[in-house]
Write a protein that binds this DNA or RNA. Sequence first.
DNA 1: TATTGTTATACTCTATAACTATA
DNA 2: TATAGTTATAGAGTATAACAATA
Lengths: 143, 143
Amino acid sequence: MKSTLGTTSGLVRLGYLIQETYSEVGRACDLTVAQAQLLCTLADRPHRMAELTGLLGLERSSLTGLVDRATQRGFVVRSSQPDDRRAVVVTLTPEGAKAADTFHDLLTERLEALLADLPAAERDRFVKTMSRVVADAPAVFHD
Amino acid sequence: MKSTLGTTSGLVRLGYLIQETYSEVGRACDLTVAQAQLLCTLADRPHRMAELTGLLGLERSSLTGLVDRATQRGFVVRSSQPDDRRAVVVTLTPEGAKAADTFHDLLTERLEALLADLPAAERDRFVKTMSRVVADAPAVFHD
DNA sequence: TATTGTTATACTCTATAACTATA
DNA sequence: TATAGTTATAGAGTATAACAATA
């Protein structure tokens, strides 16, 4: 076990760990990664389709299918807006909110465990630096 | 912009940033994320299918398809092992090695840029802590 | 019997291009 | 004309289950 990895290698492997955790928690909640991202984003508040494409980094047509499947599963509903009748607003159903909550709590537990072995001071520094690094990243998750 | 994010929210957004970067670099190199992961893993050395399923976190049948497509594109070759004729060894072709190199270099550049704005001391601490956290993660990337 | 890998099948995810409705 | 969203289509990725070959 090498004592020090390079920046890239560290980031790639950390990304892998996070992705794996996200995926495993999703599986435990019977959610795909894409579905979990959608629900977590909507947990904050409803969004229009156009906003969601930006937040999730998807093409409009990809999002249509994702929202279709989430609707079929009873997690979200589409509604229209009076002021712009082209727009479609996506909102969590109570079931969707519950699924998002369950996923959120389990993910929190699993991700915090990744840092659990660090000394408290080092962990705090790490989290603080991380906050700086991701300051401009889309808000696809909320504490 | 909140000054401090929680551990989970920070990790999720960092994972998102890394994944986005990985995906964008892949697109620039005409590689899907899965293909890039395969090539980067094989850049270290050839691996048997069974090893790759562990490193990449895939089912055997999923890996079969991934290696099929990488073979069709001329990036890898399958060969057999004398000592265990059930095993299949996957090796990069020169083209595959070149694609892996190009991807590696661009990804390194893009990921290092994520930390470029940090003060040197803070960046060093961050990378060091990250190394500890990912110490046991699969070696899907090498500096 | 257990392990290695493939095949068959089905579903999710994603993109591009063409289309409809509204602004 | 431009924007919001959907539909049609195609390909990649993934999993489960059944299978063949080898250990």
